[in-house]
């Protein structure tokens, strides 16, 4: 049995916002019957055509696909379209208290449907969705060439997911996108893409800025925690929350597996080293129990 969180179970058993919006402003559709999951997302905008007033969904898929869709509709309501576009698949998973890694593709499907809905509304070119196609496109065909023939997934899309989720193995890419999960023929290509993405990151090594305003410093601390620290903790089933920043003092609280972990002191030092490397030399990380 999958180890679903109580929030996932709740959103599966009592899904919010199931249905359709007949006069929806934006509709996003991803997935297919052949692929085993699909999501149709409806968005209703306010009179200024900016803020999302209402969201509804229809999902074909497993419990975590239904829960991810339900969570997504709750998350976007009341947000402007730009705010909504900032929602990452990890945000959806976080909202649900986490997803088993093998099920992360469900959160990716949610994020993708949202993007498609808004991009289409803004008149961007999104190819027509073909849900009847046997093993058709799991995700809309971005620019780029198909890598995974079984699920119809392009290199452009894979690189995006690899980069935003900091994936390092082909197995992770399969868990997040399904690519490589059927015949497995594209796994070498996926490994190449991972190498490319990691390589790109190496081309522009990030260094500590010379001078930082207080405001910029706080932003950078948050960014490093999100991009460089939390994914490392997730890998071990842990997490952290930023509690406060006071000058160079950064207060964090450890969550999940990290909470109460005997080596959280070491983890705090690891966070400190990262922040000193990438933000400012004088940063001190303190663990608080908030």
């Amino acid at each position: 049995m999958w180890d679903y969180t109580p929030i996932v179970k709740d959103h599966f058993l009592n899904p919010r916002n199931v249905g359709d919006i007949p006069d929806a402003d934006a509709v996003g559709e991803v997935g297919s019957l052949a692929c085993g999951d699909a999501l149709k997302l409806y968005l209703k905008l306010d009179d200024n055509k900016d803020k999302i007033l209402d969201a509804k969904f229809q999902t074909f898929g497993c419990a975590s696909a239904i829960a991810s869709s339900s969570a997504l509709t709750e998350m976007v309501k009341g947000k402007t379209m730009d705010e909504a576009l900032a929602i990452s698949n990890q945000d959806i998973a976080d909202f649900l208290g986490g997803l088993p890694e093998e099920k992360m593709h469900c959160s990716v499907m949610g994020q993708e449907a949202l993007e498609v809905a808004i991009f289409k509304y803004r008149g961007m070119d999104i190819p027509e969705h073909d849900s009847e196609h046997d093993h058709g496109h799991a995700y809309p065909d971005h620019e780029g060439t198909i890598v995974c023939k079984c699920f119809g997934i392009t290199d452009t899309f894979l690189k995006k997911v690899i980069e935003t989720n900091r994936l390092t193995t082909a197995e992770q890419v399969t868990h997040f996108t399904k690519a490589g999960g059927a015949c497995g023929g594209c796994i070498p290509k996926i490994q190449e893409l991972i190498a490319q993405v990691l390589g790109d990151a190496d081309v522009q090594p990030r260094t500590r800025p010379e001078k930082l305003s207080n405001m910029k410093k706080m932003q950078l601390i948050q960014e490093v925690l999100e991009r460089d620290v939390r994914p490392l903790l997730w890998a071990d089933g842990g997490d952290l929350e930023l509690i406060d920043i006071d000058g160079s003092r950064v207060q964090v609280a450890f969550r999940k597996a990290c909470a109460g972990c005997a080596s959280s002191g070491n983890t705090a030092r690891m966070v400190e080293v990262k922040l000193r490397d990438l933000v400012a030399e004088d940063i001190v990380v303190e663990e608080v129990s908030a």
């Binding site: 019957l33 085993g36 999951d37 497993c62 093998e102 099920k103 699920f151 399904k178 999960g181």
Partner: peptide, 20 residues
């Protein structure tokens, strides 16, 4: 597929050509 952690329906159903 989703129960087993694999992404395709069972090899038995696929071998039988059960419609997707």
């Amino acid at each position: 597929a989703c129960t087993s952690g694999s992404l395709e329906p069972s090899h038995v159903l696929r071998a039988m050509g059960v419609p997707f």
